[in-house]
């Protein structure tokens, strides 16, 4: 009984913080989502309008488009980061001259604020003055114009995200790889397993929890990306990079459509949870089933 009380007391500050900064705002957002509320409307007061905001979502082409491009962005960014991050982690497992320096330099993007990352990439890609369009034009005769080429703008946001966040994946997977016991690998080598077999049957299953955690973190981050993309493209050209976080920002702040913005936020949270759950089921359930058999 006593230990129970102490336990709750120890948890109390965390629970209080969670309640004030997590649960209460969520309940408020949920409440606002069922209201019509634009402080610059003819009637600036909050009025209850049932599920109208959610109904409006289903027919909102801009919102659906933003969801589609966000999923596309998250898919390409996260998959690339996991593959690149794993390869770099494997590289850092080996001894080579300058490894320490390379590892430090490679980690530097992580400490740069997203808004700064966006600004730097904007400077590098602005047509006529950026170094990237200049080099592409000089070397390949390719005119990069992120103001007019939707595909190029999308690709650049993906590359920027990969540049910024791959080091996080590398560090996580490196920690996982370093913690693996040597015996199973030695055993496999003695049994004549090749590199691919070792990777597929030993390394991958053993670092699966680390990969899963990294994928979840990066997926959730990618789905709510705003600042970097805002700086680089402002969501353009057109709606090519108007990812859902940016879309919500535009609805809630410049447009001050608080009720509708809250409804989008709730739906996006729900979609994120569903996506993570599906991913969890896809990656973990077969394994658990196999183990049970």
């Amino acid at each position: 009984m006593r230990s129970n009380t102490v336990g709750w007391l120890m948890l109390a500050p965390t629970i209080a913080i969670l309640a004030v900064f997590g649960i209460a705002p969520f309940i408020y957002v949920l409440y606002v989502a069922f209201h019509h509320w634009n402080p610059f409307g003819a009637d600036p007061l909050m009025t209850y309008n049932g599920a109208n905001n959610f109904r409006r979502l289903v027919f909102d082409r801009e919102f659906l488009l933003s969801i589609a491009v966000t999923i596309k962005f998250a898919f390409f960014a996260v998959v690339s980061e996991i593959i690149l991050g794993y390869l770099l982690a494997q590289l850092f497992m080996r001894e080579f001259p300058g490894r320490g320096l390379f590892r430090t330099v490679h980690t530097l993007p992580l400490i740069v604020a997203p808004i700064v990352v966006g600004s730097v990439w904007r400077l590098m890609t602005t047509p006529s003055i950026g170094i990237i369009p200049y080099l592409l034009k000089t070397w390949f005769g390719y005119d990069l114009n992120i103001g007019r080429d939707a595909g190029a703008a999308f690709l650049l946001t993906v590359i920027m995200d990969i540049w910024h966040w791959t080091p996080l994946v590398t560090l996580t997977l490196l920690a996982a790889l370093l913690s693996l016991p040597k015996e199973p690998f030695e055993q496999a080598q003695i049994d004549g397993a090749n590199r691919w077999q070792i990777f597929w049957h030993i390394t991958l299953p053993m670092i699966r929890p680390a990969i899963l955690a990294t994928v979840f973190i990066r997926l959730m981050d990618a789905l709510r990306t705003v600042d970097e993309v805002w700086m680089l493209t402002s969501g353009g050209p057109g709606a090519a990079t108007r990812y859902v976080g940016l879309h919500i920002w535009k609805i809630v702040f410049p447009k001050t459509d608080y009720g509708y913005g809250a409804a989008i936020s709730v739906i996006v949270l729900y979609l994120t949870l569903v996506m993570c759950w599906l991913l969890y089921v896809a990656l973990v359930a077969p394994r658990q089933k196999k183990e049970a058999e």
Binding site: F40, E62, R148, P237, G238, P254, K255, T256, D257
Partner: peptide, 22 residues
């Protein structure tokens, strides 16, 4: 107009589509 940003934001996505030739 007291609805300056609201009308701008509502119509701007279409304007960007015009700029892109969509």
């Amino acid at each position: 107009f007291p609805f300056h940003a609201q009308v701008r934001e509502a119509t701007a996505p279409i304007f960007y589509s015009i700029l892109l030739g969509e």
